[in-house]
Design a protein around this nucleic acid. Sequence first.
DNA 1: ACAGCCATGTAACTCGTTACATGATTAC
DNA 2: GTAATCATGTAACGAGTTACATGGCTGT
Lengths: 183, 183
Amino acid sequence: MSQDLPMTAYALLGLLTFGDPEVTAYELKQRADSTLRFYWTSPAMSQVYSETQRLADLGLVTASGEGRATRYRIADAGRDALRSWIEETQVGFPVWKHPVALRLIIGHVSDPARLRSMLVDYLADLEETRRDLQEVRDRLVGADAVGEPLRYPSLVADWGLAHFDSERDITRDLLVRLDEETT
Amino acid sequence: MSQDLPMTAYALLGLLTFGDPEVTAYELKQRADSTLRFYWTSPAMSQVYSETQRLADLGLVTASGEGRATRYRIADAGRDALRSWIEETQVGFPVWKHPVALRLIIGHVSDPARLRSMLVDYLADLEETRRDLQEVRDRLVGADAVGEPLRYPSLVADWGLAHFDSERDITRDLLVRLDEETT
DNA sequence: ACAGCCATGTAACTCGTTACATGATTAC
DNA sequence: GTAATCATGTAACGAGTTACATGGCTGT
């Protein structure tokens, strides 16, 4: 039962459990961009194509080739695979790749002005991304009552918003400390 | 000048600018495990071997094969590459892969008890990782005065600690909300 | 009709991993 | 002296990317 698929495969299966049950790879990529990207990497378009094909080969989704594009729908076997993935596999600790922190660590080979502008830019990016997520979250309002499937995306969106807020606070604080030190 | 290397290469170059200037691949991996892993992925041992070799081929580090193992030291060209990487390349937004959030999003295909225990486990992992980072940070005390190279790792460690604290708070809050809903 | 974008794929390639092979060092 | 661990690599593989090719759709 525990077919060992890449995480992205499960992520895509998960996306297929929401909303219109029959979607093209393109639409699936859009779903990934609007939600998945905040907690995972949104897969490249090409990977969505190849991964959906694999899922179809394994019988975890059914492919129907009516129009020009293939449309996918999650199969019962897919739901089973998803459930057992959630319940049986080990969860693991979050990994992040933080290019700002990575550069700041070796701040001594750079100069304070560069570090400062890097953090300022990061603050702007943070704000923008937070706005995007807020929009996503706003669109869930009304469909996210307790018991609804979208309840959970809504909870996770709140999580993400809080995370971005915290990250903003920390970064601001860091800027203050840097400024104090260089004067 | 802007040789396009994988991020990991720059990360390793960065690690070579601290402490004992001449290290083996093994020791470099240890440095990565103790600091890098909190803000980036710590590369696999094998990748450290291959990446250091590439850096040597490019002349960014010098390899000296005295003992059994090859020892590496950052070269002037390496410092230049590192500097120009920090100052010229685009920084990009942090990416994280959050297996807990990913599973929670599709909470509707699981059951509340499983979700709950997943979050509880996550809290424990968070605490442990935070402890590890605190240890690393403690070891910096004394060598992290303003102006010292280790000043920046110290700042970034504080950043990480604050991040873990925030993540803990959010997760606790999430647990409360989940419990409220299921009763 | 044609310029530009939307959409569907395929191919080549790289990063980074796990698995494997092997040699040195230490503990008992 | 032998088991366990530390250390140094190599090889095979896989996930995920960018680049490429192509077809349909839309506005003017």
